[in-house]
Every structure is written in C-alpha cells, then in structure tokens.
Simulated scan of single mutants.
Amino acid sequence: MSVTLSRRTGPTARAAALCAAVALAATACTSGSAEPEAEGGGDWSPVTVEHAHGSTEITSEPERIVTVGWSDEAALLELGIVPVGMAASTYAGDEEGYLPWDLEKIEELGGEKPELINTDDGLPVEEIAALEPDLILGVQSGMEENEYEQLSGVAPTIAYLDQPWMTPWQDEVRTIGEAVGRTDEAEKAVADTEEYLDGLVEEHPEFTDATFAAGTLMPESGELGFYINGDPRNALLEQMGLTPAPFLEDVEAEENAFYGTMSQENAEDIDADVLVMWFNSEEEQKSLEDSAVFGEVEAVKNGGFIGYTDRAASMAISSPNPLSIPWVMDDVAEDLSAAVEGEA
C-alpha cells in the first residue's frame, strides 16, 4: 500500500501529547518576543555534559545557539528557544530547507527563522563560526571527532551521546534541556510526548504481539536496507507496542551504521507481520513492488505492507522529536492498524 499522509498540526495536538538562509534579528535566541531565561530567574550554574567525544562544560547561559543535528533544533524549539542557526533539511524541507513542524513552532514563539546550514557534506566550521555561537548542538548527528575538536574551538560543543544518529529522542531532549538550563521543561516535553504515544497505544491494542520491520530500497545497489535495533524509527515503532521481527537479529550493519542490507533474492526471509518502507519516489517504490520476489514476502501478500514516499513524513519518523511526533503519528497509527489487520 502506498500512503500519503494528512497532517494533524497545531498547539492542540502538542498539548495533547507528542533534514534551509534568512537575516537574523539583533537578539539571537528568542522565546516569544523576549530573551530566553534559564531556570532560576536568570541565574546560571555551570553544567558538564558527557557525550561520545568527551565532556563539555557550559559556564554561562547560552544565548546564541547553533544546532547541527537532525532534530536538535526541534528539541530546542520545544523548550522555547529559537536557534540562530540550524541544519538545513535538503531532503525533506521546503524550498529553503525548513521543516514544517519547526516553522510552526518558530511562528508560535514569535522568533526569526534561523540561518540555515548545509551539513550534507560535513559540518562547515567557518560558516558556523560566522554565526558567533556560544553553544553548538549535534546531539542527533554523526559529528566526527575532528569536527568536534574544530567546533569546540568556536564554542562549547555537544556531540551525539553514544552512536552516530542513534540518540534516543528522550535523551536528546533531556541533554539539550540540561545544556540550556531548562531541565524541567525538558522533562515535561518528554512526559507529554510519551503520554501522547501511550494514548495511541491504548487506542490500538491490536499492535500487541504484532511484529514489524522498517526499511528502504537502496537505490544504487537495489538491496533492501533494514534499520537495526536502536535506530530511532525502530524505537518509535516499538514504543507503539510493536515487536521487531525475528529476522532483524540476522541483519548485520557496518560499524556506526544504523541499517544493514539484504539482497532482494533473500526477501523470503522477511518474517514480519508489518513491513514499513520509505522510498525516495513513487517510481522507486513501483520498481520494488514489481519485483516477483518482493511480491512473495508474507507481509506483502497478507496486506501488511506500507510504503511511504512523503519525505516530510519520512523525516518526522526518522528523527522523531516532540514536534514531529504529534505532527505525523496519528496518521501512522491508522496505517499500522490497517497493516496489522491485513488491510493495508
């Protein structure tokens, strides 16, 4: 089944809970129309944040923040702070590179749109430095150690916590909350988002005991790519009550990769009840669906296959956060329910 999602957006959905250049105002980070205030009425206590490349001490309240992780800007926005610069989403953003849930929140906060930074070929240190940041966030990134060292010469920098691109969204929010002195707000954002997801699970008891696999078609090799344990997509589907399919235990990923590959010739090994796949285009999806071996996959034969070509929806799930989760998951839950029931 090919799916085009409608959106449920706005402050009401967030309250129920859950990859861009523009001139900047004189005030760098805004919360509404005023300067952001750290907890304690503006008092600041130094904090030290541990991450994959060491530890970072933040000795004063950050006022000019640049985000280079996939969804770090969304976590920061949810805490009421608009960054001065953020990674452009050249895959899923609008013509400039902004993601819709970010734009909604920036408008809600009354802030200026951040300067966009193209990180597709690595982190442009000079471009980031030109924004004069006093904090650089790459919590949901693949920031390499040499990039971390260069950026640390510009401002305190926080890299991913353990594995590249695989920081759980809850840890991402809490880490960013700690770095900007808004731990209470971070805990509330996590709790509200998890409450929203719990509500979806309660609405769909059919998810219990159903198995899933999430993946994509590798356009250059034609292999099937499947996300592995710890990948944010899998973690989100598990939080919905689904269980990873047994065959995923045999899918091997290269070091620091968030997916492993399988030849289409071995597609019969896919033993998931629900198969969720993302495609760059409808043509790409059709090329796989026209494959005779893919048509023999149990989930495909049994109405348990969901194919997504909407790039914004793909990004919302690929790098989930308190803004993107309620933006997309109502519709995803309905698609998953249909797949579990064999009606996708």
Rank of each mutant, 00 (worst) to 15 (best):
D331Y: 01
A339D: 10
P246F: 15
G54F: 02
E78I: 05
N229V: 10
G215Q: 14
K113E: 02
I58K: 01
A214Y: 08
I117D: 08
T261K: 11
E172V: 11
V201S: 07
L24D: 04
G307V: 04
C19A: 13
D273A: 10
E61N: 08
I128K: 10
L116T: 14
P219Y: 09
E107P: 01
F212E: 05
L237M: 14
P232I: 03
P322D: 04
E35K: 14
A21K: 13
D231V: 02
Y196Q: 02
S291W: 15
W278E: 11
S263G: 12
S337E: 15
L123K: 09
Y91C: 08
P168S: 00
R64S: 04
L24W: 06
E284N: 13
M262T: 12
T59S: 13
V84N: 01
R233Q: 00
G93H: 05
V180R: 01
G153S: 14
E149Q: 11
D331L: 01
V340R: 02
L137I: 03
E61M: 12
A16V: 13
Q285C: 09
L109K: 02
T167S: 10
G307C: 07
T157C: 09
G142R: 06
P11K: 00
D162F: 06
I128A: 09
E78D: 13
